[in-house]
Amino acid sequence: MAAGGDHGSPDSYRSPLASRYASPEMCFVFSDRYKFRTWRQLWLWLAEAEQTLGLPITDEQIQEMKSNLENIDFKMAAEEEKRLRHDVMAHVHTFGHCCPKAAGIIHLGATSCYVGDNTDLIILRNALDLLLPKLARVISRLADFAKERASLPTLGFTHFQPAQLTTVGKRCCLWIQDLCMDLQNLKRVRDDLRFRGVKGTTGTQASFLQLFEGDDHKVEQLDKMVTEKAGFKRAFIITGQTYTRKVDIEVLSVLASLGASVHKICTDIRLLANLKEMEEPFEKQQIGSSAMPYKRNPMRSERCCSLARHLMTLVMDPLQTASVQWFERTLDDSANRRICLAEAFLTADTILNTLQNISEGLVVYPKVIERRIRQELPFMATENIIMAMVKAGGSRQDCHEKIRVLSQQAASVVKQEGGDNDLIERIQVDAYFSPIHSQLDHLLDPSSFTGRASQQVQRFLEEEVYPLLKPYESVMKVKAELCL
């Protein structure tokens, strides 16, 4: 049975990233139509530049190519590739079939990587351009969430054990800070992308030097003109047959890092959902379990974690691919890159769409948070109580021993009897502590235990987050809708 299948058929496997999760716009960027249309555009740009620099290419040939950029006979191309065992030459023939007058000058002087690699770089750039505003929107939604809850005390956790208090907004800023680093890295790697350009079979530009009869300047002009037509500021000066596969490492490393950030955020949300302090959106008709109707599973956060793990592992592909590119190139890269580049971007696209949807509907339960604080705060307040007693004339050592005994009794009630923490009640009825009984409410005010959390939130948002989001103001209103 021949390899390949009808990918629109229910009898043929289709990647869930495309069929179930990723956005239509990201799927289109990695589609065959987008790819092969870009090949034709690159052939047109090459012909236009070659004509401008004096090669015998007519206006009629150029116009014929322009008129057929979208006229792609995919069936013919597939048949040609089956016959020739070469995808680029299959599309040269297919393009030439609908451009008979231009057929002889299509791909003039070029090698397969002229269309293959340059198209990949265009796709990487455009895919990054799709991700950047999506990530900015996630940051914006979380920034709104953090600002609104900047002063809401909550129990902090280290080692997932109760620690000092923080605020809900401050905790959210930990998430935002990681995503801001990801946004900066995505922008950097996007701006650092260079075009492969017009380089020939081993990167020496020998074929173009021959076409222009040894004119170095025209060869350099050709490279520059096509690079500018493709919208790049610069091209690699040095290439082998391909652009260095280190570029793929750079791009997928940034995406993998984004995956790590999203995994951490969504894990926190899942843990908070278990504590009943916070939940992701839950639709009115949504079913959490087929057997347990009360369940409210954090399905979206779980999906993000599941896909983020996949995204983090994909960076190993370009690392290994770059390491086995012998001399000017081997074909070890080809099949692998067809999979890992598309999957990385479709996965990143999915987790950003999902995280935006989550961040637009996060639900906080202040009463649950308050109750958990009441359970733990008495123990945390013991040092403040000791200091207040010393100020009232008591002995630190005597007070410490009193607190120690009462704390152990209260802990026994919590752990052995399943009761509430009654340390404060014990202190309130103990005559030894009568000098500070009137101060206990103040000493137990949760806001006095959150330090500068709310001020940190305000400063972080104003100095770091809002300036970073400013270039994306025009796209901030787009909502994230999930079908599944």
Rank of each mutant, 00 (worst) to 15 (best):
F30T: 07
S12E: 15
S12T: 11
E417C: 10
W43C: 01
Q456A: 09
T382Y: 05
L406S: 06
G116R: 02
E250Q: 09
G116S: 14
I373Y: 04
P471F: 15
N336A: 14
D192K: 09
Q458H: 13
E343W: 03
L461D: 05
Y365E: 05
M181E: 09
I287H: 06
G288E: 03
C172G: 11
A344I: 05
S323D: 02
D268V: 02
T347M: 09
M225R: 11
E370P: 06
L211G: 03
G214C: 10
R125V: 09
L355H: 04
D87M: 00
H310E: 04
N185I: 06
R188L: 06
E50C: 08
P318I: 02
K187G: 13
K101E: 11
K66E: 10
T52E: 10
Q320A: 10
S334D: 05
Q428T: 14
Q455T: 13
L211A: 09
H442C: 13
G259R: 01
F28I: 07
L174H: 12
E425T: 13
I351Y: 01
R309Y: 04
L124D: 11
Q408S: 15
V364I: 10
P467S: 11
P162Q: 12
L346V: 15
N274W: 08
E228M: 12
L469W: 06
I287Q: 05
L443E: 04
H7K: 15
K224L: 13
P100C: 06
V168N: 03
C27G: 12
F157V: 02
R303N: 04
Q164L: 13
N421L: 07
A90K: 03
K35I: 11
H400E: 02
V219W: 02
A335C: 14
M387Y: 07
G419P: 02
M225I: 09
F208G: 06
C180R: 05
I265N: 06
Q241T: 00
R141Y: 15
H263T: 14
L135E: 07
G393H: 07
A335N: 02
I351Q: 03
L209Y: 12
S253F: 12
S67N: 13
W45N: 14
G393D: 10
R33C: 15
G5D: 14
I403L: 05
L142Y: 08
D349A: 13
R404M: 09
S207D: 01
I358H: 03
L211E: 04
V168K: 02
L222C: 10
A49F: 00
C399D: 06
D215R: 13
E213D: 07
V429D: 13
L319T: 00
Y432M: 08
R303D: 00
P298M: 07
H97Y: 14
A2G: 08
T382N: 06
D349L: 03
L124R: 03
H97I: 15
Q456K: 04
A322N: 07
L406P: 03
K367H: 09
V368W: 03
Q164W: 00
V226T: 10
D6C: 07
A143S: 14
I72P: 07
A308G: 13
I424E: 13
L193H: 03
V363C: 05
N353Y: 05
C483L: 11
T450P: 04
L132W: 15
F433I: 05
L42K: 05
L352V: 10
E302R: 01
L211P: 07
D445L: 13
L17Q: 12
T154C: 09
D332K: 01
H7R: 14
D87L: 06
L255K: 03
I403K: 03
T267F: 10
R296I: 08
S434D: 11
E464D: 12
H86I: 00
C304F: 02
E383N: 04
L484I: 10
F327H: 08
L271W: 02
V254I: 12
R296H: 05
S323E: 04
Q221S: 11
C172I: 08
S112T: 01
G288Y: 02
D6R: 08
S112V: 00
Y21L: 01
N71V: 11
C305F: 01
Y294M: 03
R309Q: 04
L121R: 01
A49M: 03
Q325K: 01
L211T: 15
G200V: 00
E228F: 08
S151D: 11
T347D: 10
L423G: 03
T382A: 09
D120Q: 00
Q325N: 15
Y432K: 06
I249N: 06
P16M: 13
M76W: 13
R337C: 00
W39F: 14
S448H: 15
L55K: 13
L130P: 00
I358D: 07
D420L: 06
A235N: 14
A411C: 14
L55G: 01
M292R: 02
R190K: 15
F30R: 01
F145M: 01
S207Y: 04
A392G: 12
D178T: 06
T38A: 08
F449P: 03
L346M: 15
Q458F: 12
C99W: 00
R33M: 14
D191T: 13
E25P: 07
V92W: 00
F460A: 03
A103Q: 13
Q184L: 12
Q456S: 08
I287M: 08
F449K: 10
D32C: 12
Y34C: 11
M316I: 13
L155E: 01
A78E: 14
N274G: 04
P133D: 10
